[in-house]
Simulated scan of single mutants.
Amino acid sequence: MSRYKPLSDELDPCARQLVEQLRRLKDQGELTMRHLAAKTGYSARSWERYLGGTSLPPREALEALARITGADPVPLIALHEIAADTWDNRRAQPDVEPEPAPHEQEQEPEAEQEPVTLIGPTTPPAAAPAPGRFPHIALTAGVIALAVALSAALLLMLRLDDGVTQAAVAAPPSTAAASPSPSYTCRIARVDGRWSAGINEGRNDEIVYGATGADVAEAQCLLRRAGISPGGIDGMFGPLTLRAVKTFQQRSGLVVDGMLGPRSWKALRG
């Protein structure tokens, strides 16, 4: 479980709820900053700012995180839209602090004159900014109430599902009960004169970008054996694996299309 720095007390409540949900999804998926960078296209430093509450993540980053963790992106997007409005309003609104009443200067005269002096010059400045701030206060209160309601609904849904939603979204019905994060181990060996990683029983089925499963893990192991890193052996045909496949195809004199077909499999197995 990751340990995060406490969020700033000055952080808007809507943005705070969003950051807490992002942290929860990252921890549930056991993702590191490097995993997030590799699988979402946003750098590790960007994710540090998003999860630290110092920068509001773009909507595309939320959708990418929901996709790789199997979460429903709709609640995140709804919370993001509210947080974006309050985030902009908070930055646009100037920090106006009323000038301190000159108590020290007015305590020197006689005590009977203090009420007259304080009420006269102090009341107008305090009443002047109030009409302009009422709309902001009402808007902020309404947004906070809506954010709290959305957050409560999201937390209730996550507790009731207890991980079932992730499996249902990430896998088809026939495999909904399977483990969402299988573990693969490369066992490189020569079998009948061909290289094998011992994962997909020697299949040479065509796989393309976005595919998942044992065939992808087999290809990742063989790419690593060929001296080209595909990232982790996670069974996910992502950007790093795509780059490794294209590098191997170019090195082997094959058509560089990023797809693993019969000719690419034959070259991988040697």
Rank of each mutant, 00 (worst) to 15 (best):
L155C: 10
T175K: 15
L240G: 03
G213D: 04
E206N: 05
S8V: 08
G210D: 14
Q249A: 12
P262V: 01
I228W: 00
S229M: 03
S8T: 12
E104D: 15
S179C: 03
V164W: 09
V216Y: 13
E206F: 02
W265E: 04
R16H: 11
E104R: 11
A211R: 07
G132D: 03
R190Y: 04
E104K: 11
G235R: 07
A61K: 02
T140V: 11
G198C: 09
L76G: 02
P262D: 04
G29E: 00
P109W: 00
G238V: 12
T185G: 09
P239M: 05
I68Y: 04
E112R: 11
I207G: 08
A267H: 08
T241D: 03
P13E: 00
G29H: 00
G238E: 08
E81H: 02
L150E: 08
A244E: 05
H103A: 12
W87G: 01
L18E: 02
R34S: 14
P57I: 12
S196E: 15
L223Y: 01
R225K: 15
A83Y: 03
E218A: 02
G253N: 10
L62M: 04
G270D: 10
Q93F: 03
A37W: 11
L22M: 14
R67Y: 07
I144D: 10
A111N: 05
P239H: 05
A145I: 04
A171S: 13
R23V: 11
L260T: 07
P109F: 01
S264D: 10
D234F: 12
C14P: 00
T185A: 15
G270L: 03
R133H: 13
I228Q: 01
L51A: 05
N200G: 05
A167Y: 05
G261W: 08
Y184F: 15
G163Q: 10
E20R: 06
A214T: 13
S264A: 14
L240T: 09
A214C: 06
S181Q: 10
R49S: 13
V255C: 08
D215H: 12
A145N: 01
A101R: 01
A138Y: 10
L118H: 04
L76S: 02
T247H: 06
I68D: 08
R187C: 07
R67W: 11
G231F: 04
R133C: 08
G120V: 05
G52I: 00
S8A: 15
T185P: 00
P100T: 09
P180N: 06
V255G: 13
L76C: 04
G193E: 02
A152H: 12
S2E: 14
D162K: 10
I77W: 02
Q250Y: 03
R91D: 06
R194K: 13
D85Y: 04
I144C: 02
D9T: 13
E108L: 12
A111G: 10
A127C: 15
L223F: 03
L22Q: 10
F134M: 15
V74Y: 04
I228F: 00
Y42K: 14
A78V: 03
Y4M: 04
E114T: 02
G53H: 05
D192G: 11
R263S: 14
R23N: 03
